[in-house]
Design a protein around this nucleic acid. Structure first.
Lengths: 222, 222
DNA sequence: GAAATAGTGTCTATGAGACAGTATATA
DNA sequence: TATATACTGTCTCATAGACACTATTTC
């Protein structure tokens, strides 16, 4: 028989606030590392959870109230050293949410949104998990619709471009970006819908939405 | 306390024989599914394995005699239904090996090399794992040095091109391929070394090797 | 020299970046 | 009308594909 292994799920949840990528951290309510900010995580409960993804969604809902957000498996971290309680497995997830959906959660429950690049030292091996999540986000952002999941369901082309720029950390060419998006055909216009023009935004912009609710990866030639 | 969870590792090991991608299957020596071909797998042993990757290497060595081959984590499969023994987690790995290194293992231990695309139905959720492994291989092959790990440490440009073609399942342009490889700078010439000319191979080809022992991913612009 | 495979040079097509110019809103 | 942002058109440059041509081996 196999010796006991602790099986947990951790979620690296990102959002964008004022053009800066932020990672959600939550004060741990229990030992070990009680009181310290860490990734959102918890045990898998075999009696309750159909699989690890269901566990991740349950834990997200329990701890932040969020549901129906973008979630994909990142990778699994394991070993004798990463958790003081013993040999453990953490199935890590990457989650993206538009900031607006996060507002109600706000400052509740000791939640903070730490700017990526200025993360505090994290307990367990959450530094490694966070680094892997950022890397996945950056690399996959370059060839998929992933950054769009940081936006509301309807968004303008400038907002979409900003999301890609934030994720990839570099400026993009405007006309090339629009051409690419048009060619890829992953978004569609929302008929007759324009963003409101405000004091800051002069000409209103066309609204778009993703054609597919799911992540779409672009082709890549060798 | 957490209810018991079974924690295993499964390895999808690929090689190329005569230009066809093949997946290693091994007859299961024990229940459940005893006698049926399946991915190479086994329990994690917390007392012995430092982490899941170490467990994968141990299991590969035990069951096939292979060590020091390309191995990377694929993804983790979990749930109540996938294993009749109970709620389980399988951390799946992708492994690549040149056929030559496999020859000594050969037909031993009920090992077969099934042609990808003609795989038999597999036990557990190994069909899904195999499908995910093939997909990872194909997509990552297009933008990394991954296919080179199906070759011997020294290889010719035509062999490298064949490896990429086999992995990606489509023909590549010869001169463009050479240019790309030269530009990427991931391989280097083996000084003065040429492949032997045989009755079949007329002009001998320059030998190359990877500059980096590790996987290198190429850049991608949006 | 014929045949077969290895390797190079160059033309063309495609797609990204640069950037000027047009469009539409507010004040 | 001035200004700011949204959007389009077009030029240029980089890179991939096509393919003809050269090189080196065996028989």
């Amino acid at each position: 028989m196999q010796a006991r292994v602790i099986v947990t799920v951790d979620v690296a949840l990102f959002t964008v606030v004022d053009g800066a990528l932020r990672l959600m951290l939550q004060q741990r309510s229990r030992s070990p590392f009680q009181g310290r900010p860490a990734l959102i995580g918890g045990y898998i409960h075999p009696e309750r959870d159909g699989d690890a993804t269901a566990a991740a969604r349950r834990i997200l809902a329990d701890k932040t109230g969020l549901d129906d957000i973008f979630l994909e498996q990142l990778m699994t971290f394991s070993g004798a050293e990463r958790d003081p309680r013993g040999w453990s497995v953490s199935i890590a997830y990457l989650a993206l949410v538009p900031h607006g959906k996060l507002a109600p959660v706000g400052g509740a429950d000791g939640v903070t949104l730490a700017v990526v690049g200025k993360l505090p030292p994290l307990p367990f091996d959450h530094d490694r998990i966070a680094a892997a999540a950022v890397q996945r986000l950056r690399s996959k952002g370059a060839y998929s619709s992933l950054p769009a999941f940081l936006l509301e369901p309807e968004f303008t082309m400038p907002q979409l471009k900003d999301a890609y720029q934030t994720v990839m950390g570099e400026p993009l060419n405007d006309s090339a970006f629009r051409r690419k998006m048009a060619d890829l055909g992953i978004i569609e216009e929302v008929a007759d819908a324009k963003s409101p023009a405000t004091a800051l935004r002069r000409r209103p912009a066309q609204l778009y939405r993703l054609k597919q609710r799911a992540l779409v990866a672009f082709d890549r030639t060798l």
